[in-house]
Design a protein around this nucleic acid. Sequence first.
DNA 1: AAAAAACATTTATCTGTTTACCTCGATGGG
DNA 2: CCCATCGAGGTAAACAGATAAATGTTTTTT
Lengths: 364, 364
Amino acid sequence: MSEDNGPKPPSPELPPKPGKRLTLGHIADQLGISTATVSLALRDSPLVAEETREKVKQTAQEIGYIYNRSAASLRTSRSQIVGVAVHDILNPYFAEVFSALEDVLEEQGQMIFICNHRDDSKRQRAFVNTLLQHRADGLILCPSVGTSTEEINRLVDQGIPVTLVARELPGVWAPCVRGDDMCGTYLATKHLIEQGHKDIAMIGGRRDSSTGRLRNEGWRKALNEAGLDPDIQVDLPELMTQADGRAAVPKILEADPRPTAIVGFNDLVAFGMMTTLRRAGIEPGPDIAITGYDDIDGADARTPALTTVANQPEKIGRLAALTLLRQIAGDRVPNKPIVIEPELRIRESSPPPGVRIGPKLDAD
Amino acid sequence: MSEDNGPKPPSPELPPKPGKRLTLGHIADQLGISTATVSLALRDSPLVAEETREKVKQTAQEIGYIYNRSAASLRTSRSQIVGVAVHDILNPYFAEVFSALEDVLEEQGQMIFICNHRDDSKRQRAFVNTLLQHRADGLILCPSVGTSTEEINRLVDQGIPVTLVARELPGVWAPCVRGDDMCGTYLATKHLIEQGHKDIAMIGGRRDSSTGRLRNEGWRKALNEAGLDPDIQVDLPELMTQADGRAAVPKILEADPRPTAIVGFNDLVAFGMMTTLRRAGIEPGPDIAITGYDDIDGADARTPALTTVANQPEKIGRLAALTLLRQIAGDRVPNKPIVIEPELRIRESSPPPGVRIGPKLDAD
DNA sequence: AAAAAACATTTATCTGTTTACCTCGATGGG
DNA sequence: CCCATCGAGGTAAACAGATAAATGTTTTTT
């Protein structure tokens, strides 16, 4: 029962803010009309005459009136605030999703509260609580690992529009916009198999997020279809970042048989592996094939250019925002996942297995 | 006079939100006390008895009461909201600054409205206006190019705490937390000169932002001190991204004399140049020395490891947040820039000029 | 002249916070 | 012993600034 109620209300003794602000009343007085009319005029209601509207707006302009959303929100229970929580905007993929979200929401006059929950469900919960205190109109969530179905469903029950993005949470009564992760790694793995690889590792992805689980399944599916046994391949879970990718290299190299190809959970892990492999004298591409996921900025410009799965972050972001807006507008949105098709981008990092396996002894 | 007043108030006909929310009144009724007492109890005021406070809090817990900040804000004119506007959180450097900001502000119960203004002062202005409508407690701003001194000073005049971050805006009545950009490129350039380079290009940086200007000046200063004339060197302004870096390469290569070293405006531009140079058969490092700025994640793991200037983003973010919080608390903060010392990190990408100049003709 | 637009106003919220004031028993000076 | 004072614990009522709903006024239409 000891619920985490998030930040407390502020303590009473704070220095007062200076300067009385202007209100509707000032405009009303100045023009000799009522505040109700002023309110309606500013909101372009058809209930006020064109001429009055003009005068009101002009006066508002002149005296430097600033609309008070707290006051409006109190009356209307609409805050024009939506929350967005992702595990890490440092990840360029999310940064792109976020940019698209922002574009759409901003256009509708929504402001965005953002939270980097860093896959800490405590942080996420604190954020959601504060969001509720601000009476946010909705929440776009890439749920942290460890998020329970119930805590999200409780929000939905309270009537808060929720849209999941990138990560699915089975059993949640909310729509989800995500890429087809299983399909993505399936395509990448199949491509590597067609190139002639037989020892194909899967590196990274958290098993307790749908993204990690599904990408792993796609890899398994492709291997199984080709008659290869995924369970005897190298399969390192839990890695997400460049640093993780770098750290994984020794484990890959000491595997027996050593994989000739690697399916990376995302581009960052792939980049991390590539830089460290090269340092070990093993040229990514010629010596060991690598694929990534997300096609982040620069993936095509690396040496070698990274074969990866394009995931349409801006489309996912835009759709998630639109889905949330529909819910906010009162639409009953089916809680079925909206799955965006990925596209394999074949580049230089995934050639057929070559002869140059093993550290070059004559490395300069 | 046609001021941009940002997003309009919402139009009147929106579907109503379902479900009455619980209020202080419900707790008061249940316990047979007044709402005033409940309010005070929840905020730990010494004006209510210990015992009452306990009962109030327990009841609040039980019935699932959620504090309404809009209502409180209306009375107190404190919103527990701060705005953060930067030109691009896609830039990993800013993402790190932002993470630090977030940590500090979150701890104080502040929520963050974020804006990617993309160096568009219109977007920035719209954001600031909406911020005012929400009665934000303060604003942390990396001002877009084209931001006028007056528009910021007007905010300060209205009593809105403002702290600038990363970019300075001379004449603004607000503190600024930034790295010592001039010193950073000065150190990098001096290092290249000490390595024996004489033709040192400066690539990137917008002249209408303090960052771009100061980094350029640092480069000039080092050249001048070494008796080299900056005005006859390659100096390409306005570039900020990896893509920009890639695009700049042809211009660098066709310069006469061709520079043997490049000072990049930031790591992204440096990375972009490195990948494209390598594709042109010119190995960054041995064939052409390169330095970056920011020391973003992965800079030390590239081939070659990038010599760059570490800029302490988390320190800058933290200090900016603390400075803003002091202002919000009512402190009069001196409007003098807080300048963080940078540190040159010498790695592999900046060796002395070698013999391998020019495209390899036998490139594979 | 009755009915219907077209405009504007009045009034009652919305939910917390604040301020002035009340109650009641204890203390203490005269 | 009486009355003034005090402190602790609370409360009623006045906000804060906008909005929804109901209720007037005119003016126009039929």
